[in-house]
Write a protein that binds this DNA or RNA. Sequence first.
DNA 1: ACTTTTGTGTTGCGATTGCGACATAATATT
DNA 2: AATATTATGTCGCAATCGCAACACAAAAGT
Lengths: 226, 226
Amino acid sequence: MIVNKQDKIKKSELLSVPLFSGITENELNQLLYCCRSYEAEYKKGDFIILDDDKVTYVGIVLSGSVNMLKNDIYGNQTLLTYIGPGELFGENFAIQKEQNANVSFVAGQTTHVLFMAAFNLIHSCSRNCTFHQTLVQNFFDLLGKKSVRLMEKIEITSKTTIRDKILAYLSMLSQEQKSRYVTLPITKSELAEYLSVNRSAMMRELTNMRNDGLIDFDKNTFRILI
Amino acid sequence: MIVNKQDKIKKSELLSVPLFSGITENELNQLLYCCRSYEAEYKKGDFIILDDDKVTYVGIVLSGSVNMLKNDIYGNQTLLTYIGPGELFGENFAIQKEQNANVSFVAGQTTHVLFMAAFNLIHSCSRNCTFHQTLVQNFFDLLGKKSVRLMEKIEITSKTTIRDKILAYLSMLSQEQKSRYVTLPITKSELAEYLSVNRSAMMRELTNMRNDGLIDFDKNTFRILI
DNA sequence: ACTTTTGTGTTGCGATTGCGACATAATATT
DNA sequence: AATATTATGTCGCAATCGCAACACAAAAGT
């Protein structure tokens, strides 16, 4: 995880962000201006506020990670999903307006974010820039991925036992990281929250699974032994 | 729930679909042609296939409902969400290409669906129709709602006890239907599946809750007594 | 009208889980 | 370097839940 110490990230790095795939450096400059974009850095635990009264922004995680939390009326909190580098958040501007979804975004670690005005991003500007087609397509692709993330979480938490939830989660990580050695992108406590299970019950089950020869782990590194 | 017996639904009814909000009847005609749209009717339990090899279509539920299911590699099935009149499904065309999400759509009852080519829907056609701005905006709003639906499910299933899950679910229904008398849009068996709990355990808890004076119910009608 | 399938409701039992309490390790903060 | 905070690991106990099995009602298909 590389944290950029400069105020502004290099253009070349921005070009590798999925949202800008197929966009040239020239177009990117126009685009960033068009969408009133700016960058910000957050430390672990910082709340990331999206609403700027008049303009609604979407955030793109450049480095680090952002946790998406939902609070219910009783004050309970659910970790909906976490957003990694290259991914979008806050793109559901419809939500914020129509109903109070009580979704909040919190930096999971030191995190660099690029903000852009959502409206300008998806609508052609007066100059009818050529890249809007590409951009809209990319935007939809990212939305699809976000949706997949939520569905993954549902699939995982739908398992009835803690053991099955852990296995489903590790299996997902294994696919993502293309290895049977996987590194947790979150703390074990956060994992328990993500799986919607009691933390100590999860710890107990983890050691049971190790004793049963299903998995092995040390700190945040896990090995899946089938 | 009105099921249209005709082959084609009236234009005036289509205009009331959220995706077409702000679109004139004239524009709608262009649009439907542009997007190679067609209608289909399904009976309860019918699988709805979206992939048409070359063009990927999105579906709009005109009447009835569609259940969105996810199958894992072990053959387990999860009811991700259900899609009601005016709502979209299959819009994540990015998903089907990039990774096999194993999502399938099944009619929950007699259901009328309008299909449209997704690409043409979000991209301006050669004639640069004026309504594309509006359409893209509507599309995003609907995607946001879909996302909210998934988050709702996560919030509900994240509760630790069956009782809390039921209460969270009924509270959501109550908000939707703007009444403390609510009608289940799905069967009780499907509800258990949606809540990711054992059906008989859910039944037991329902009667417990009735005995404790929390709720009352008859068939598919529930009353919330706080 | 009859049969088959699907949905509803109930119960006992054993397994799993949440909870609370505690100790220690690791990380931040000053 | 000292202190505070957060994360990790373990355990006993009581509550909850999944499971299996059954009976009956409702709906769908013939």
